[in-house]
Amino acid sequence: MPVTRRRFLGVAACAVPGALAGARLAAGTNRLNAALIARRNPTCTLVDLEGDCVLRESLDGFRRGLGASSAPFDLANADQMRRANLIVVPGAAPGLANLAPRLRDLAHDGATVIYESGAAYAEADGFGSERRLLARYFGIEIAPPIDLWPMTPGTAFAPYVHYEWPGRVMVRDFSRATPVVGGKGLFARLGEAPVAQRVQVGAGEFIFLGSPLGPHLWSGDREAQTLLEGFVRFCQPA
């Protein structure tokens, strides 16, 4: 298999802390070891998708929230993404064909990837490819985005997303959401609709957020911050 410069640098970058950590890092590092490496080096990467981030204030919100959580993090664009315990991708435009396999690889190697979908805030024609990519690479099935407002009197639900993991918190909805169809690992609901799912990918996890969280971090919502800190704690070494 040809080794690109980027892939070589990525492997090299991961090898340095690995070497410092001990001799267990052999050339044939398996998935378990990869996960151990990630958890011994509690790092977080916040990914700025630049033009493909459809909710810029979400990026600002995660930056603010991670800063407040005292989790060490760096900011990278999609090309600079490297392995980390936690990789946060805020406000992703739908159908990013190059991004999905890279996120899957990173999760496979032990990272927890939080993927905040911006599908509900992008042009409708991107939804089909978003659905295909999520199904293909992560086994997540999503439904078309829904408008939550204005709520119909009498049929309305309270405007909160109920998260059950990593803690039980209620965070406001964000006007539109991309529901997931079902399956294992559902951990948040908007009314009856599941809007978040976590799936095991190799040694890591892929977490799909169908209701934006970042804008609430940006506006200083305490419960959103609690949730983010829960994610961070989940990714830190025991």
């Binding site: 204005p150 405007p159 506006s219 200083g220």
Partner: peptide, 12 residues
């Protein structure tokens, strides 16, 4: 509004 709360409005 009921949909967009005060903290968001202020910040934006």
């Amino acid at each position: 509004t009921a949909e967009v709360p005060y903290n968001e409005v202020y910040q934006r």
